[in-house]
Structures are given as structure tokens and as C-alpha cells.
Design a binder for these strands. Structure first.
Length: 592
RNA sequence: CGGGGCGUGGCUCAGCCUGGUAGAGCGCUCGGUUCGGGACCGAGAGGUCGGAGGUUCGAAUCCUCUCGCCCCGACCA
């Protein structure tokens, strides 16, 4: 391919819209254009990488017997009403009417459609199990699209759905997909982790997310340094941290007076009496008031109590309550409800509030807590005694350095991750609500057990860049590089150089390599080098008059910057060798 | 949704406060000289200053509305 004909406009300056590396580099290298907030054009270079990744995904899924199909982007409301999600799904679901006034939406996911397909086409246990997938554009009307392709509104996704006669078979397939995902991301050479995640309101039994590790990732991950346990921090089990009690046996109301002092640390330091010159943070408690929305759309108030030096994990609170949604009560409302200003609210004496106490406080006594009177704290809180009916549960945010709850030996290490894939056991949710059933050998009808498995194709390509770049531009891993060899003609005015460049281009292509030939005239070599570094193909081949005079062309490794002078006839062999080296290094670098 | 910021050639931005004939750099076109890390000279093309309304003799500039885009936001209970 001649670069002079390629649809591409590289930019010397970073567009001001771009705030993460992948977006900056993709825009500067002419891979994408922004059409609207969170909506991008995938130009030829980007689309080549996307298609290569898609090919890897197809290959690995087909190896495990998955079948590819393609469902419509536009979906009728009726299906979503059947599953119950039409009302439940938030504003992310872009709804609209057709000319006849019928309700439709742009598909953010395809559980409803695939379930409809299978219930109409599959009747017998003999046809199961079945795993169907598609690679397709999705639309989610994100509240706040950002980070380029990493959180767009329109994006390309691979979604697969499996159907089974029983739970055990669905579990089996879950791990088949789990392993397929490991192979897929390993082939990219990116560092990634499968992590246990919150199954959310969809109510599936268990789920893993696959994260590409990158500082710009939106998710926090904790991973044990001794065993295999890794989880999204929303889910990470926090170890119980027992702290000594103060010995205070009864609840002294409004015991500490800390007027106008806010902040947990400052308040604790200011809590003084005859026996105490300030309290330890582990003797204090923090309290949060939430409003929970339950499945039947009723709401209730939930109080969360934790040790003063611990952070609350709202996802855990939500799950303990079994709520569909949980929101922090706005400060002004909370102040009216408790009768105290921020900083002095506490759990004692509040009516009609379900109290959840972190299990680190189970058996503790002698804690301080807000008195629900501005400027005052109680002393001597014993949750079991003073908060009758309270639930003890793990509701704290685990943190780096906490002891691992699985192996008990290691400690958590923190990472940032970009969620690029998820495997999810759905269970019966859709098959039951939508009547997707099969007949067993006895002729009895059962709902199918389902699983679903997603990979963000465009997000993964962006994530690859987040992990592979330097000050000069992208450093593509071989398997998803738009082109593998960037052939720079340094003297396009020189007939001998032209002949050689064209000849090498053809030769490499004949051997199956993908070559972008920078044949542009009137550009200085420096300008071509800069562009080549920015585009970041694995190998750069330089053909110029200077080299040809010595009878050589030069091959440069984008990652190591090593340059090799070669006789033209040795080129193909060397490019093959370089590819093999890179693929080996990639295997070594991938995974953990 | 709340708060903040920004919309001026394809890109990055100046001009706005203090109204008076729209600018620079990069990119693009043509000609010439260059040619191994973003060359130089000359000549060009390209902008309803996001949109609507208003104030004014006169609005990119002041006022109102609107649209778009970007950023920040649930440590004090």
C-alpha cells in the first residue's frame, strides 16, 4: 500500500479534546476522527487493527465451537418489555419511535434478541448446548462519554450467549470461555488479569472481568501477591481487622464535645476527657446514610457503620440489602433527618433505618460515634447492643496491603485496569421471563440455563495502545499492527531508490507481510521518521540513496530502536526472523 | 444531573477586557532550491468568528437565549 494514497492525516499537535494517551495517539496518527461526543469514525488504519483483533477473537471462539451470527442494531421495545428491562434499563438505552409510532431502541446488548432467536429455533435437549456470538456495533448513551474509544457511546463489541440444559453445563461453558479469553488476550501480548467482579443487578451467580492493566484504567483491582485471587475492588473481600476495645462498657451520650471540628482524623484527635487525650481512629466509627431502591421500586433508608479508618464500599452495602440501587442521601436531607450537621451524625436512635455494620466492628465496644447533635459524639458504642437488629457484614473497601482473605498468606496489591471483557453466568433470568425452554428426554419442559460473554473490541484496541507507546508514538504489537512493515522511501526523486523500494514492497507482500510504503514526495527524511514513529508499526524499513550506495537498506525495530543494515536480498529472511523474535517476546510478556 | 471551562480556516491558538475592514504557526495547492530526525524562498486556496435574537452608525468583541464540546463531582454523616 502506498502511503500517498492512504486516507490519513497525521497531526503534529495533540487535539485538545484528547485526554488519554490512546485517544491522543489515535487522533494524531490519523486512525480515528471524532464525529460527536463518544462517537468516532474508524479510519483505515484503525479499522485494520480492529479487524485483526476481531480475527483473533473469531479464531479462538470457533475453536471452542461457538457459532457466529449477526443480530440487528435496532430492537423492538416488545422484547425488552418481555424481559422487564424496558422499564428497568436507564437512560443509557437510547429509545426512539419509528414512523408508525412504535417503540424501538438501539441495542446496548442482545440478551433479548438472542433469547428470542433460540426460543423460536431450539426445542430439544439434543440441540444443546449452543454458544452463539456476534461482532457488532453497540450503542450505550453513556452519561459522560470520555477517554476516546475507552468509554465511547458507540463501540464495537463481541457478545456471545450460551444456552444449556442445566447449571453444571453452563458452569462448564463458563470456564471454557474463561480460558478462551485468556488465550485471546495473551495473543495480544498485553498484561491482563481476570478478576472476580460484582455481578450487579442482573443477578447472575458469578462473573469475571478481564482487565488490561494500565494506569489510565477506570477500575481499581486488588490482586493477591501470593495466590491467584484477583478482584475488582468493588468486590474484593476485606479481611476482618480486629482492634482492641477501649474498655468503655456503657454508652455515654454526647460525651465528647468537638465544636466545629470536621474530618475523621481531626475529630478523633480532639476527643478528650479525663481518661483520653484524643481517640485512636480504630476507636471511632463513621456513618453513612443511604436511600436504597428495592426490586419492587419501594425505597428504604440504610445506615452503614464502619470503623473510622475504613472506607465504605457502597456496592457491598447494596448487595447486603439486596437493593437494585443505592444512593447516598443528599447532605441537606441527611442533616434534617438526623438533626445534626455533617460530621456529627451517627447511627444511634435513628428510626426506620436498616443498620449495616462492618464485620470488623463485630464484638467491638467502646466506640465513638456521631451524637446526631451538632458538635457532639457519643462514647461507648457497642453495635450489637446499641443498634438492635443491625446486620454485620463485610461492607468496607479493601485496600492495598490488606491480608488476602483467600490464602491468608499474601497481601493485596493495587492495579488500575481497563475492563475489556467479561464472562457472566446469567442463569435463568432471560429464559424464564421470555419462555426460552427445551424438552428433556422425558418430554418435560425446562428453561435453558444461559451465560453471556463480552469483549469490547474497540476498547481493547485502545487498551493495547495504553500499554504500548513511548514519547514518539504508538508501539504496535505485531498481531494487531495496522501494517507490520513501514517502508520509507527516503529519496523518492531517485530512480534507483524508487525501483528498489517498489521491489522490496512487492517482495515482502509476496511473503505475506503487510507493508505501508511511504512514497510521499517532497518530505524530508526527518518528517517521514517522525510519522513512522507516531504510527508505530513494528518494523521500519529505510531505503535511501545513502544506503544503496553501500548496497544496504536499513531495518529498524520500533520498540528497541535497534537498526540493522542489510543487503536487500537478505531482507525477507530478516523480517521473518524479526517477526519470530517479536512473537516470542510477546508470548513472554503477555498474561501476568 | 450539579459545578466549571471552551466554541475564531483541516489542526493548535491569538484577537474579546477597552466594539471600527479577521490574524499567526502547522497542514493544503503551485513554482523553485533542498533532502538521513518534522528544511527554505516565493505565490496561492481556505473562515456566515457554533447558531438565533438584541444593543449600536458599526458586533468575533457587549447583552439574552440556544446548540455543541471538554473537564471536575458521592473523604467529613
Amino acid at each position: 500500500m502506498k502511503q500517498s494514497k492512504l486516507l490519513i492525516q497525521t497531526l503534529r499537535e495533540t487535539p485538545k479534546d484528547a485526554d488519554v494517551v490512546s485517544q491522543q495517539l489515535m487522533m494524531r496518527s490519523g486512525m480515528i476522527l471524532k464525529l460527536a461526543a463518544g462517537i468516532y469514525d474508524y479510519l483505515p488504519l484503525a479499522y485494520r487493527s480492529i479487524r485483526k483483533f476481531e480475527a483473533i477473537v473469531r479464531e479462538e471462539l470457533e475453536r471452542d465451537g461457538c457459532q457466529e451470527l449477526l443480530m440487528p442494531t435496532v430492537q423492538p421495545a416488545e422484547l425488552w418489555q418481555e424481559s422487564g428491562r424496558w422499564a428497568f434499563y436507564g437512560k443509557e438505552l437510547l429509545r426512539f419511535k419509528d414512523r408508525k409510532g412504535g417503540d424501538f431502541c438501539l441495542g446496548p446488548t442482545h440478551e433479548e434478541v438472542i433469547t428470542d432467536i433460540v426460543r423460536r429455533s431450539v426445542r430439544s435437549y439434543k440441540q444443546l448446548p449452543m454458544n452463539l456470538f456476534q461482532i457488532q456495533g453497540k450503542f450505550r448513551d453513556e452519561i459522560r462519554p470520555r477517554f476516546g474509544l475507552m468509554r465511547g457511546r458507540e463501540f464495537i463489541m463481541k457478545d456471545a450467549y450460551s444456552f444449556h440444559t442445566d447449571d453444571a453445563d453452563a458452569d462448564r461453558e463458563y470456564w471454557v470461555m474463561f480460558n478462551a479469553y485468556k488465550r485471546i488476550f495473551s495473543r495480544l501480548g498485553v498484561k491482563f488479569r481476570p478478576v472476580e467482579a460484582d455481578s450487579g443487578a442482573i443477578g447472575g451467580s458469578f462473573t469475571h472481568e478481564f482487565h488490561v492493566l494500565a494506569g489510565s484504567g477506570e477500575d481499581a483491582i486488588l490482586s493477591c501477591d501470593a495466590c491467584e485471587y484477583a478482584s475488582n475492588i468493588e468486590k474484593t473481600e476485606a479481611p476482618v481487622e480486629a482492634a482492641p476495645s477501649s474498655g468503655q462498657k456503657e454508652l455515654l451520650k454526647e460525651h465528647f464535645y468537638t465544636p466545629g471540628i470536621l474530618g475523621q482524623v481531626e475529630q478523633a484527635a480532639a476527643m478528650k476527657d479525663a481518661d483520653h487525650n484524643g481517640m485512636s481512629l480504630t476507636q471511632t466509627s463513621v456513618f453513612f446514610l443511604y436511600r436504597a431502591t428495592l426490586a419492587d421500586e419501594s425505597t428504604k433508608l440504610v445506615g452503614a457503620v464502619l470503623r473510622g479508618d475504613h472506607d465504605v464500599n457502597p456496592v457491598k452495602v447494596k448487595n447486603v440489602i439486596g437493593a437494585m440501587e443505592l444512593e447516598l442521601m443528599p447532605l441537606d436531607e441527611a442533616e434534617v433527618f438526623t438533626g445534626a450537621k455533617s460530621g456529627f451524625m451517627g447511627p444511634v436512635g435513628l428510626k426506620n433505618v436498616t443498620m449495616v455494620v462492618d464485620r470488623s466492628l463485630e464484638g467491638m465496644s467502646g466506640l465513638t460515634c456521631g451524637a446526631n447533635r451538632t458538635d457532639y459524639h457519643h462514647f461507648g458504642l457497642d453495635p450489637a447492643r446499641d443498634l438492635p437488629g443491625c446486620l454485620f457484614a463485610d461492607i468496607r473497601m479493601a485496600k492495598e496491603g490488606d491480608a488476602c482473605t483467600r490464602c491468608g498468606k499474601g497481601h493485596y496489591q493495587a492495579f488500575r485496569g481497563i475492563e475489556v471483557g467479561q464472562v457472566f453466568k446469567l442463569g435463568l433470568k432471560y429464559s424464564k421471563s421470555m419462555g426460552c425452554t427445551f424438552l428433556d428426554a422425558e418430554g418435560k419442559e425446562w428453561p435453558m440455563v444461559m451465560g453471556c460473554y463480552g469483549i469490547g473490541i474497540t476498547r481493547t484496541v485502545a487498551a493495547v495502545i495504553e500499554q504500548n507507546y513511548d514519547a514518539d508514538g504508538i508501539i504496535w504489537p505485531w498481531p494487531v499492527a495496522p501494517y507490520q512493515v513501514h517502508l520509507l522511501n527516503l529519496d523518492p526523486g531517485n530512480a534507483e531508490v524508487n525501483t528498489m523500494a517498489n521491489q522490496l514492497e512487492k517482495e515482502l507482500e509476496r511473503e505475506g507481510f503487510e507493508v505501508l510504503h511511504d512514497d510521499r514526495e517532497g518530505l524530508s527524511p526527518g518528517a517521514k521518521f517522525k510519522d513512522a514513529d507516531l504510527l508505530g508499526f513494528p518494523l521500519r524499513l529505510m531505503v535511501g540513496a545513502k544506503g544503496l550506495k553501500e548496497g544496504v537498506v536499513e531495518l529498524r525495530d520500533r520498540r528497541t530502536k535497534e537498526v540493522m543494515k542489510l543487503k536487500p536480498e537478505a531482507l525477507v529472511a530478516e523480517v521473518s526472523a524479526a517477526r519470530d523474535r517479536m512473537m516470542l517476546a510477546l508470548e513472554a510478556a503477555g498474561g501476568r
